[in-house]
Amino acid sequence: MNVMAIPPVYTSQTCHQCLHIHLVPDKYYRSGKNFKCGNCDHTCDADYNGAKMIEI
């Protein structure tokens, strides 16, 4: 089994559906346990979204 280090930068701010990154502080779409993309309106659990971003 290989292990790969994944940089955590922007994993909680990037939508795993459309890969849009929310860099504007007042447009941050993670609220507690919820994530909503401002680009494609995808909504899911914030931890799930982050996990999908680092999934290989």
Rank of each mutant, 00 (worst) to 15 (best):
D41V: 00
N49K: 12
D41M: 02
Y48K: 13
I54K: 08
Y48R: 11
L23W: 01
K36D: 02
S12F: 09
M1I: 07
G38N: 07
L23M: 05
V24G: 02
M1A: 11
H42K: 12
V3F: 12
Y10A: 05
M1S: 12
H20P: 00
C40K: 01
R30C: 03
V9D: 14
K27G: 01
G32S: 11
T14A: 07
H20Q: 01
I56C: 08
I56E: 08
N2T: 04
C37A: 01
N2C: 04
V3T: 10
C44Y: 06
A51T: 15
Y10R: 05
D47Q: 10
P8N: 10
I54M: 14
I54Q: 07
K36L: 05
P8Y: 11
S12L: 10
R30W: 02
V3D: 06
S12G: 09
D26E: 11
Y48G: 06
V3M: 08
E55Q: 14
Y10F: 11
A51I: 15
Y29R: 06
H42D: 01
Y28N: 14
H20C: 00
V3S: 09
G38H: 07
G32D: 11
D41A: 05
A5Q: 15
D26F: 04
C18Q: 00
Y28S: 08
I21G: 01
H22L: 01
Y28M: 11
H42C: 04
T11M: 07
Y10W: 08
A5H: 13
V3W: 08
Y10V: 02
H16F: 07
R30G: 01
C15P: 02
S12K: 09
S12W: 09
S12H: 09
V24Q: 09
Y29S: 10
C37P: 00
Q13C: 03
P8F: 11
D41T: 03
A46R: 02
N49V: 10
H16C: 05
V3L: 13
